[in-house]
Design a protein around this nucleic acid. Structure first.
Length: 454
DNA sequence: ATGTTC
């Protein structure tokens, strides 16, 4: 190991962790150019090469690893506030909203949207992200300051994205996908930090909407393509690795630069995807609940590699920070923050599971020192998908949640069983561990009202 | 996560 491994968690969470996580944290610590420590968040679990919940930063002489980002490039969460109290919406209207969202928001494996992007326009989309789709009429220019990187990460290189990856996304812009992706209408249940909540426009009892999804088939295909490129690079640059899943290329190499260019294109695709979904969301609310006024609170990813400046051992350094299942949570004054958020750290959105809480957090200066400005990303599974399917029945889960007043609309009964609340750890415990470690502070808790899933 | 095993 070149650096120590460091795990942020409570004793109970460490005991619940797969031993594979510790092995993977240790493996990542051996990689060329890694700085300070190989980190894992309290929701860490076994992933491809890196643990999901893993954070690792490399200096310019280090490498970039596709396993440090994962297959769902730039998966993330956008929070939108509706500026209307739940109490002002009747159960009947909530039911109509659930049905309208279910028909309006394309979701599910292989789901397709109504938008076809021609090849020429796709290059612009991959280069400009949410900024491009706003110009095309999806959403408002006022949304852009409230998206990470102002809606468009620089340095994307669409020419490094394979024709196959481009083809796979053909009808996928503005779609949720499947698995743990969802669109959820929630109510602000508890305010933990009233000052920051006020800055974010979050008021107890009001409705908000979380959109959790990524770059769909495009990002997945980029990861698959570069897995092969990186394997070839690893052997040609003569790295010896503890795990072949950790293949990577020097940051300055042709292969490394190509991956970074393609990965940033996928980031822009994901930002555009969530922007188009926001537009569909507004259309749905406009039909059913026109009193609502939908404004973007923020949009943040949890599967990325980003070039950032951090202070390490007293001096400022340019680093490439891999966050895989770890939310960027930069401290106050972070680059590209909207002026309205001058006084607070980067907003962080932690999804629980269907039927449980989600949390809004904010990054801290201490998190900058301890985790390169990173936090957890979710509850983390307690049961595998297979185990969850054996334990739960999807139709029964839907009925039980309906009895609690939570409306689930899903394209897949089996998917609901896999995503049952009982298949996940307690998200509150994970969030408490992040806060105890000083990585972020808790701002508000959200409770589900309507859940739209693939 | 993923046209869920090229």
């Amino acid at each position: 190991m070149r650096v120590p491994g460091r795990l942020f968690a409570t004793e109970a969470l460490v005991r619940a962790m797969d031993n594979k996580v510790f092995e993977q944290v240790r493996n990542v610590a051996t990689l060329p150019g890694i700085v300070s420590a190989s980190l894992a968040m309290p929701d860490a679990h076994w992933g491809y090469g890196f643990p999901i919940g893993g954070v690792a930063a490399f200096d310019e002489d280090g490498i970039v690893c596709m396993g440090g980002v994962g297959y769902d490039i730039s998966c993330g969460v956008r929070l939108v506030r509706a500026n209307i109290p739940r109490g002002e919406v009747s159960p009947k209207v909530l039911g109509r909203l659930a049905d309208d969202l279910f028909t309006t928001i394309p979701a599910g494996l292989g789901s397709e949207g109504a938008i076809k992007v021609t090849e020429g326009r796709l290059e612009e989309l991959l280069d400009q992200g949410a900024r491009f789709v706003v110009e095309q009429g999806y959403g408002r220019s006022e949304d852009l300051p409230f998206i990470e990187e102002l809606g468009s990460v620089p340095g994307a290189d669409p020419s490094k994205v394979s024709a196959h990856a481009k083809r796979r996304q053909r009808s996928q812009l503005g779609t949720l996908g499947s698995g743990n992706h969802y669109l959820e209408v929630q109510q602000v249940d508890a305010i933990h930090d009233s000052t920051t909540a006020r800055v974010l426009g979050l008021r107890a009892g009001e409705l908000v909407i979380s959109i959790h999804c990524g770059s769909r088939g495009l990002g997945h295909q980029i990861a698959t393509d570069y897995q092969h490129t990186m394997a070839a690079a690893t052997s040609s640059y003569g790295f010896t690795l503890p795990d072949r899943e950790l293949v990577g290329a020097p940051l300055k190499s042709a292969e490394g630069l190509a991956y970074l260019g393609a990965m940033r294109a996928a980031i822009n695709y994901a930002l555009a995807n969530r922007q188009v979904l926001t537009d569909l969301l507004r259309q749905s609310f406009e039909r059913v609940l026109p009193e609502a006024e939908l404004e973007v609170v923020y949009d943040v990813s949890h599967n990325t590699c980003k070039e950032e400046e951090h202070v390490v051992d007293g001096h400022r350094q340019r680093l490439w920070v891999h966050r895989k299942g770890a939310t960027r949570a930069l401290g106050p004054g972070w680059p590209h923050h909207p002026s309205a958020y001058e006084s607070i750290g980067q907003p962080v959105f932690i999804g629980g599971s269907m039927g449980t809480s989600s949390y809004v957090l904010a990054g801290t200066s201490e998190g900058m020192r301890r985790s390169f400005g990173s936090a957890c990303h979710g509850a983390g599974r307690a049961l595998s998908r297979t185990a969850a399917k054996q334990r739960f029945r999807g139709d029964q889960v839907v009925r039980e949640l309906a009895a609690q007043g939570i409306l689930v609309r899903s394209h897949s009964v089996r998917g609901v069983a896999e995503e049952a609340p009982g298949a996940y750890k307690d998200v509150g415990e994970v969030v408490a561990a992040v806060e105890a470690a000083g990585l972020s502070t808790t701002v508000a808790r959200l409770l589900p009202v309507i859940s739209v899933k693939g």
